[in-house]
């Protein structure tokens, strides 16, 4: 038999606010459960290097869902979704991750998300601290206001997915390998145009921890923030500002990295995230023995 990845794809039927969603997710490994969240307008393939890394899967049960409307998770049946503008809200996004964890009966998993998924990390630590051992926000920031003027052009009929893909290529680090930058942008060629724009409602507009970040209690849920040097969408200084406001949180500046650490340069990302994984693994083991 030829080479086969150890990743398995399945569908879970989640109930969120009375609506059933058929959610595609991939899973590999065993050990500490870790839920990985993709970026806006994208899907779980962004995590393909992480979920196939034996150094990770030997210690972690890696679970990578596609949000509804993304990847292989179709819009919900029984809802006239085509009659509405797709809009991701913080409330739904948080409920989705929590529902996924509960549905799979995960025991206080680690949450790891990037971009809008990174922004969700501190939001979850604030609103659902008992559900997670730790949250890791890649490109997490206090907020990402300032580029809302681009949103109406992300699903403009004059522009194809090429624009979204090229734009994402541009927020990778210039030193990231060309093939990985192309793979990162390839995922953006696949999404439905209204979905990227709708996701950015949460990313650009709704997410803002100004004035409340200091309420996060890292004794209840540990917080790690990792920011890429070349990320001009979620500025590293806004990641550091967020970390400064969360007592007991950890900040890692990723030199030579852009907006998509796990896909644009996995070997470099692994160097930055491995010590964090060691720490959250220890935290999970401690809490499991209590």
């Amino acid at each position: 038999m030829g080479r086969i990845a150890q990743v398995v794809g399945r569908y879970a039927y989640l109930d969120i606010d009375g609506i059933e969603y058929r959610i595609y997710y991939e899973e590999a490994g065993s050990g500490v459960p870790i839920l990985c969240q993709h970026t806006a307008g994208a899907e779980g393939r962004q995590w393909r290097h992480f979920i196939e890394d034996p150094d990770v899967t030997s210690r972690f049960r890696v679970i990578v869902p596609d949000l509804p409307y993304h990847g292989k998770s179709l819009p919900p049946a029984g809802v006239s979704w085509w009659e509405e503008d797709y809009t991701l809200t913080k409330d739904f996004f948080e409920k989705f991750v929590v529902a996924m964890s509960r549905h799979l009966e995960l025991d206080r998993p680690v949450y790891l998300g990037c971009s809008m998924g990174g922004h969700l990390a501190p939001d979850l630590a604030l609103d659902y601290p008992e559900e997670f051992t730790a949250v890791i926000g890649l490109e997490a920031a206090m907020h990402s206001h300032g580029a809302e003027g681009l949103m109406n052009y992300l699903d403009h009929p004059d522009m194809s997915n090429d624009f979204r893909a090229a734009q994402m290529y541009g927020i990778c680090a210039p030193t990231s390998p060309e093939a990985a930058r192309r793979e990162t942008s390839w995922v953006y060629l696949q999404g439905a145009p209204p979905v990227f724009k709708g996701d950015l409602n949460y990313y650009f507009i709704e997410h803002d921890l100004t004035g409340v970040a200091s309420n996060i209690d890292t004794n209840r849920c540990a917080v790690y923030i990792l920011s890429g040097e070349y990320d001009y969408s979620a500025h590293p200084e806004l990641g550091r500002e967020l970390a400064d406001q969360i007592k007991g949180s950890h900040f890692v500046a990723m030199t030579g990295m852009g907006h998509f650490p796990m896909s644009e340069n996995y070997p470099l990302f692994k160097r930055y995230v491995s010590p964090v994984l060691d720490e959250v693994s220890a935290l999970w083991s401690e809490s499991a023995t209590r």
Partner: peptide
């Protein structure tokens, strides 16, 4: 690293037919 980054962060000018440009 790209024009949008320079535009949003360094005061670089991008103006005119931006729809055509971004397409």
């Amino acid at each position: 690293q790209d024009f949008i980054g320079a535009w949003f962060n360094h005061g670089f000018e991008m103006s005119g037919d931006l729809r055509g440009l971004f397409a």
